[in-house]
Design a protein around this nucleic acid. Sequence first.
DNA 1: GAGTTTGAAACT
DNA 2: CAGTTTCAAACTC
Length: 792
Amino acid sequence: MDVVSPELNSLLPDEIMDTEAIAMEEDLPAEHLAPPPPPQSEPEPAQVPMETEVPEIVSLCPATTSMQMTSTSTNAQCSTSTGTQLLLASSGLMAVTTTTPAKTTSPASAQNLPKISSVTVPANHQLIINKVASSPAADGKPPGAAVLKPEGQKLLVAGLSKTGQPIMLALPHTWNKPATTQGTGDGKAQATQIKMVTAVGKPVIAVSSASQLMGSSTTLQAQQLKTLQITKKPPVSTAGPMITKLIITKALNSKALTSPASVSPVVTGRVLTQSTPVTPPRTISIGEAISTVTQNTSGNSKVAISPLKSPSKLTVVSVASQSPNSPQKSVTLPLNMALGQQILTVQQSATTSPAKAGTSQSTAQAAKPMQTVTVGGMGTSQFKTIIPLTTPPNVQQIQVPGSRFHYVRLVTATTGSGTAHTGASINTNPSIQPAKSVMMNAAVRMSVPIVSAQTVKQVVPKPLTSAAQVVTTSQTPQRLIMPATHLPQIQPNLTNLPPGTVLAPAHGSGNMGYAVLPAPYVTQIPQPAFVTLTSSSTFSTATPIQTQARLSLNGLSTSEATSRPRKPCNCTRSQCLKLYCDCFANGEFCNNCNCVNCFNNLDHESERLKAIKACLDRNPVAFKPKIGKGKQGESDRRHSKGCNCKKSGCLKNYCECYEAKIMCSSICKCMGCKNFEESPERKTLMHLADAAEVRVQQQTAAKTKLSSQISDVHTRTTPALTSGGGKLPYTFVTKEVAEVTCDCLLEQAEQAELANQPQAMAERLILEEFGRCLRRIISFAGKAKTDCPING
DNA sequence: GAGTTTGAAACT
DNA sequence: CAGTTTCAAACTC
């Protein structure tokens, strides 16, 4: 099998990821540590398709993110035609695994490492990587070990690119070539192997990367997940189980991943902490799955809490500080989400031993830290922007076309190095990371879902001391605002956290700094997109919360909340920096509001941050939803503080309980409350409200149907008009139109009846409705004539 | 749309 | 913590 040269090995971070816990463990349980399992353990090994026959692997990366497969020592790199530093660019839906087989023993010489000469994109959504030429090295591969054929082995990945174009990479034959004789001399090919797994669950592609990455294949369920895994293994067994892996998992579709490999330690709606073993392989995984998120594990704990649990959405956040001595390597990969998933990416950086990275970097291509923002739209994921970070740039903004504010602010750790490493890009080879990225120690990367659809929220972590970076995505007006202030006073009282609140453990010296995000700031995200954030050690970040969380707050159904845009505020004196302002209270910037002297915007960020802090000082849970779920669920929802109504009887929207459509409870201090279960007044009101809502819906449906019918008639009669002398309006009154019109009239009658309107009024309303129907019919008729003139 | 009412938020 | 003031939404006309 492929061998990693010692030098390369030394350059590689000791640990990148532990994939086992996350993704691929089942598929290749013992792969890193032990000799390859018997063939039968591998999923359908024998039946690998032609293209996939070669077990060796290719590295892939989403198009937006660059992945580097290069080994520094060897200079072998995969580059895309665009010059980006990644081996493969895919739409982001594929996963790649690169691993060095456990079998490999002999190091490859750096010199001999080939470069990928070409990438080919066949027509079939497959990624093919070919070796440029046959290499002598191939010969030495042990049986059973998949080896790329000299003539060019191909790796096919279905659905690699959204564009539908497969990418082919040609690997120089030398890749698999054993290095110059290094110790083993057994002649076994030592090229690094990369396995790709097809969506079907079979390993599809193997590509050897110049880097000493070991690849393990993973079986994934069809169409759901792709995984990238990079494993570094010491060339010689003596090294022990140090494995570095990079795993990127991505769900191809909205369905939850079924493959264990894809399952990350993060459970939907919450982030779990994963502890690393003593010799911890460190794993960073990036995954997109509807309900799952990959998490990276690190020595320190980090917890994101998202009480809300809609399976389809998830909150991700894991922040882990790294053990001081572990080399940094973290990769964040924003992937495009096809499905409104939320992804959390975590970035870890090592506090120490940047040297490694630096060294490796030297040979590696200039991989600038990249910042990437991914925006996932409904069904259509979009990659947004990759912004190369300059060294000092602490703050950056990504402006999404059409969006006004969308941004995310990234904060670098105060304790850490000066720069935040924002690379959304994926470095398959951790060693490649620039030295400055190493400095990211304290930085925590997070992904925040952004609403792609209509509302976008932004989370702005507060910059504690250093620069921040801003990433913006999506186009919608709303955005999440994260209190940027440092909030030491907030302790990680997990039990008391509002839904969606995220605590990010500060990285670094072991001190755990926590930042609390007002839950509302992260809620109301109908269609999550992704944004990666970097936060400082003491500061934190936000976790995406699904819409539902917020909905539960105000008692609105999900559909209601998501469909209903926030009302514009009308603040005049508060500068929209007090909780009087609904926008502010909900963690949003004012947008399209009618407010005067508004400071709730990016132009007054400092003021806004102060205001947020002030609010939190007054009330640490100021941004916490007031309506929480009761013990017994939905029916038991109640206001956290209770209302204090005196005159409204708690049956008007003045009352927060009533407004939230919940009953007043014992904690309310209201007077003359009529908002209780048995209250006849309340029942009457609720009944009326429901009836009104139903009427509106029915009427809307009827009108829609009428329009449809008329339109249909229009379509059918058009030929007659064009061919002959035209039609009189009455000819448009077909049976269907008449029926629908009657429906409208009946609906109007029902409304009048429900409203207890006198008969005369009812008749009037019906006639008026009839008039409207007629006008529509006439309008369509006239339009038909206009559109299809007789002589025309 | 102007004016009033209301209760939460802010302030003392 | 209680009382008062401020504020913006809800409501009425």
